[in-house]
Nucleic acid binder design. Structure first.
Lengths: 120, 120
DNA sequence: GGCGGCTCCTACCGCCTGGTAGGAGATCGC
DNA sequence: GCGATCTCCTACCAGGCGGTAGGAGCCGCC
């Protein structure tokens, strides 16, 4: 997907590129949680409140693969290693503090106007 | 979901609120396509390139239900009515031109740095 | 050594999104 | 009238995300 069909200024295929970054519902939440600084996996599990063990692992792997976060403490994923710490990469920081934060701000500002399809 | 647990400034639960707006991959694409102005359904089908008939209908319904777009030309959805035109509501405009556009801009600017998990 | 905590994996299952196919109803043009 | 076009719906299906459960391997503490 997302071929080079981008005649319009920015918002035709780049939207899809952007959407892929937040397609997995939990990824931006993890990203946002990491804005507080380097965090261990278990702390993320407690902080994020609602995320499951597996989903967090997958989200971290996706974000790692995308280069949005780094892990520190081990060269490879090793079970049991305790010093493992995840943190935002410069790219991830730029994303989390830029568009992601603005998205959240917009949602916060317009939350009242948003008609939720589920709220009858 | 998204209860009032929002002790952190903006980016804990508002992120989830925001994510719900773009959870359906095609919604922001449709929204972005509507930035060009009021458009008929069939024109959207051609313009968006890749969207299927059903998905467009569903996306339009979701966006309508959320108040992000309006339809003009009929009071109710009526099969066959030709004058039906969809356009951004003020809320949708604020979203499409604000955070969504910035998201796309960020994606455009950092596209090269994004390692895609699928690109080998 | 024994126990618990931490990280990570797998297998299974349910739900939802998106794709395909087909059709209904209405309008327009001939 | 008739066909073409447009809007919208339904049914079915594949794939993926997320949740649950269970377990493996390693570490630190007692």
């Amino acid at each position: 997907m997302i071929d080079g069909t981008c005649q319009t200024f920015v918002s035709d295929c780049h939207v899809r590129t952007a959407v892929e970054l937040i397609n997995h519902a939990w990824d931006p939440v993890v990203l946002s949680a990491l804005r507080a600084g380097p965090t261990r996996r278990n702390d993320l599990l407690e902080r994020i409140a609602g995320i499951s063990d597996k989903v967090l692992t997958q989200a971290l792997q996706r974000l790692l693969a995308r280069g949005l976060i780094n892990r520190q403490g081990n060269d490879e994923r090793a079970p049991g290693r305790r010093g493992v710490v995840y943190q935002l990469s410069p790219l991830g920081e730029s994303f989390a503090n830029g568009p992601l934060a603005q998205l959240a701000q917009w949602a916060a500002a317009h939350q009242a106007e948003l008609l939720e399809p589920s709220t009858t």
